[in-house]
Structure formats: structure tokens, C-alpha cells
């Protein structure tokens, strides 16, 4: 197995140019939204709005302004699949279409996926959706095809500010710690890493440097693995089954007209 690879996205240097979105769409031949008819969100300069089956990179614009607009800042974050070490999508996929690659990334094999959509609701980050062209669930592959050819993912290649860093997880963690230290020494005390350690789903192979609470960026504070609910749900159902069987035994015992 190759060394685990991933992204470290430093949101503090993102300028919101969306070159990553475009590079991703071009390399992966993703179709335009809405049949190519331009639609505007109407409440933001961001018109992509979300990650889904045809948007595998999405630059979020978080516009923080006071009521009188004297104070304000823009937070920009290029969002993508987190390639979780404990991946909810991979866990629930009933066809085996979702696999872990030799680069420790999570990939959906489109020719095996049958579009059941279980992975969409299992993803703690809302990353996956159906690509209407293929009818299957799709998301960032961390450019598996480019990695096989020794290239870096298209988004990281296109990023003009090195907000998206690609490399081995070991190297990226060192880079992230160094950048965090620099920012904190410079007085940016709000800076923190999101998903860089194994406490979050065993570690996110795509992790972030943020300068506000995760919720502000649309990221869950405490993402969880879907199977946490499996055992208690199953146990309650077994109790229910036993109760119903006992109730039926008592209710039906020797009841009824004898009939052939």
C-alpha cells in the first residue's frame, strides 16, 4: 500500500477564486448544473451552494458582517470529501461500490453503485449525492486516476494560493502544525485545525485550518459514524419482537372457532 495521501486546506489563504471547482469539473468531466442554464443563489456571491454528485469541490463563502456593515470579514473554504479513516459511506454501502484505495482515500466505483443512496444520508458532512448523468452516487475521488499516474489532484494543482495542499498525511500534518503556530504567534488565536487528529472519525484525510467555530463553515462539531446506532437499535427491536410474540401467544392461545 502506498502512503496515506490527502489534502490540508488552509482556509486563511483561500481567495475564493473557485479555480479548484473548475479544475475538478474539467478533469472529472462533470456536467453543468441545471442543464447549463445559469442560476444565481440570490443571497451570496457563491452560486455553487453545495457539494453534490456534480460538484466535488465547493468554495464556501461565509460573509460575516455587522448590522451597520462597519465590521466585516469574508471566510472562504474550499470544501471537499473528507476521505475519513472511519468512513460512514463506506460502512453502509450495500453493494461494495465504496472502497478504500491504496492511498487510504475513499472512492465510489460508479460501475458497481446502483444508486440506493444509503451513503448520502450516512456521510456526516453531506458530501455525496447522485450524479444525474450516471444515476449513481458520486463525490471527490481525490483524483484516483491522477494519483495512479503520479500526478497531484486537479484542484490542488490549480489552487493559486496554496490553500489546497496535497501530500502524504504525515507531511501535511507537519505543514498544518507549522502554519497553526505561525498564525497563533501572529495573534490569530481563533485558528484551529479541524479533523487533523484521530479523535474525529479516526482522522480526516482531508483536514482544515479554520479561524472560527466549525459550524460557521457548515462543518459538524462532532461528526459520528453511522454504526453507533446499530447495536442499541437492534437490541430495542429484539425486545419489541419478544414482547409482540408473548402478546400474540397470550391473545391467540386456544382462541377461535375450531375450523378446518
Amino acid at each position: 500500500m502506498a502512503e496515506p495521501m490527502g489534502f490540508f486546506t488552509d482556509t486563511t489563504v483561500c481567495i475564493g477564486c473557485k479555480a479548484c471547482e473548475v479544475a475538478c469539473k474539467e478533469w472529472n468531466q462533470l456536467p453543468a448544473a441545471n442543464g447549463g442554464v445559469r442560476t444565481l443563489s440570490g443571497d451570496s456571491y457563491d452560486n455553487t451552494r453545495q457539494l453534490d454528485g456534480i460538484h466535488w469541490r465547493h468554495v464556501k463563502f461565509i460573509e460575516q458582517f455587522s448590522a451597520d456593515r462597519r465590521q466585516g470579514r469574508w471566510l472562504m473554504m474550499s470544501d471537499v470529501c473528507k476521505h475519513c479513516v472511519h468512513a460512514g459511506c463506506l460502512e453502509v454501502c450495500p453493494t461494495g461500490a465504496i472502497v478504500r484505495t491504496e492511498f487510504d482515500t475513499v472512492d465510489i466505483q460508479s460501475d458497481a453503485c446502483n444508486g440506493c443512496r444509503d451513503c448520502i444520508g450516512a456521510c456526516p458532512f453531506g458530501v455525496i449525492d447522485i450524479n444525474p448523468v450516471s444515476g449513481t452516487a458520486q463525490k471527490c475521488t481525490l483524483c484516483y486516476d491522477r494519483l495512479k499516474g503520479g500526478l497531484e489532484p486537479a484542484c490542488a494543482k490549480a489552487c493559486p494560493t496554496q490553500s489546497i495542499n496535497f501530500g502524504t498525511i504525515v507531511d501535511l500534518k507537519k505543514l498544518a502544525q507549522a502554519r497553526l503556530g505561525t498564525l497563533q504567534r501572529a495573534g490569530e488565536t481563533r485558528a484551529s485545525l479541524y479533523g487533523a487528529d484521530e479523535h474525529m472519525l479516526g482522522g480526516l484525510n482531508s483536514f482544515y485550518l479554520l479561524v472560527d467555530r466549525p459550524e460557521v463553515y457548515g462543518l459538524p462539531t462532532d461528526p459520528k459514524i453511522p454504526s453507533r446506532n446499530l447495536k442499541p437499535s437492534a437490541i430495542w427491536s429484539v425486545f419489541g419482537s419478544v414482547a409482540l410474540t408473548l402478546m400474540a401467544m397470550v391473545s391467540f392461545r386456544n382462541r377461535g372457532t375450531r375450523d378446518v
Binding site: 460512514g88 453502509v92 444509503d118 444520508g121 450516512a122 456521510c123 456526516p124 461528526p223 459520528k224 453511522p226 454504526s227 446506532n229 446499530l230 442499541p232 437499535s233 437492534a234 430495542w236 427491536s237 425486545f239 419489541g240 419482537s241 409482540l244
Partner: peptide, 28 residues
């Protein structure tokens, strides 16, 4: 009868994954 509710709970969706009683509810 019961796995459908368990299936909803074994996700990360609001309501579904916020309880472990959907399986037994659907079963009953």
C-alpha cells in the same frame, strides 16, 4: 419489519440518527 427503522438510525440524518427507537417503532 424492524430493520427499516434500524436502517434509518444507522445514518447521520436528523431525527433518524438522533434516536435508536425507530426500529422497534416500525416493528410494532
Amino acid at each position: 419489519a424492524g430493520y427499516t427503522g434500524v436502517l434509518l438510525a444507522v445514518s447521520n440524518r436528523p431525527i433518524w440518527a438522533d434516536t435508536t427507537l425507530l426500529g422497534v417503532t416500525f416493528l410494532i
